[in-house]
């Protein structure tokens, strides 16, 4: 019920946004270009975020999963935040988004490195050799080797 109410609120809010946007006058070419750049950047970021998620789900080993998540998360997040900054224009919100972007740019690779280092120091061995498709026994035992 709560989720449904929130949905209505979201739709209502977006309608209000559109009403104020329409009242402001005709859309100029610059706004159109800005929105196009923003949309392209956000879509590219989504591709990276989703490929990272699928990689984390499907890759065979901890270190490969870390590779997928660590690299794509940084780039995907930066692209999506860049799209949002372009979309918001030169406002207070874009400054805050720039701060989020900066913090994530610093902390995301550091956290990835810390997790990899901790796993390596704890003695977690990477899976070596050629890739073999998991058998049913591997899947039922959780894939832990």
């Amino acid at each position: 019920m709560g989720a449904l109410n929130m949905m209505f609120y979201v739709l209502l809010a977006s309608e209000t946004v559109s009403a104020t946007g329409a009242a402001a006058g005709a859309v100029d070419v610059l706004t159109l270009i800005r929105m196009a750049v923003s949309a392209i950047s956000i879509l590219a970021g989504l591709v990276f975020v989703f490929s990272g998620t699928i990689g984390v789900l499907r890759l065979p080993d901890f270190y490969t999963r870390l590779h997928a998540a660590g690299m794509t998360d940084t780039l995907g997040v930066e692209l999506i935040l860049f799209g949002l900054i372009v979309q918001s224009g030169f406002t207070q919100m874009s400054l805050k988004l720039l701060m989020v972007s900066f913090f994530l740019f610093l902390t995301s690779p550091t956290a990835t490195h810390a997790v990899a280092n901790a796993a390596y120091k704890a003695g977690l061995k990477p899976k070596l050799g050629r890739y073999k498709a998991p058998t049913t026994e591997d899947l039922t035992s959780g894939g832990a080797k």
Binding site: V10, A13, S14, V56, R65, I80, L84, V100, V115
Partner: peptide, 26 residues
């Protein structure tokens, strides 16, 4: 470490979701 990686990635995506949701509700 797999779980920790998932939590970290989940948190990053939460930040993204919050930013975009702010744009949606203006």
């Amino acid at each position: 470490y797999d779980r920790l990686l998932a939590v970290n990635s989940f948190g990053t995506k939460t930040v993204l979701f919050l930013c975009i949701f702010c744009f949606v509700i203006d």
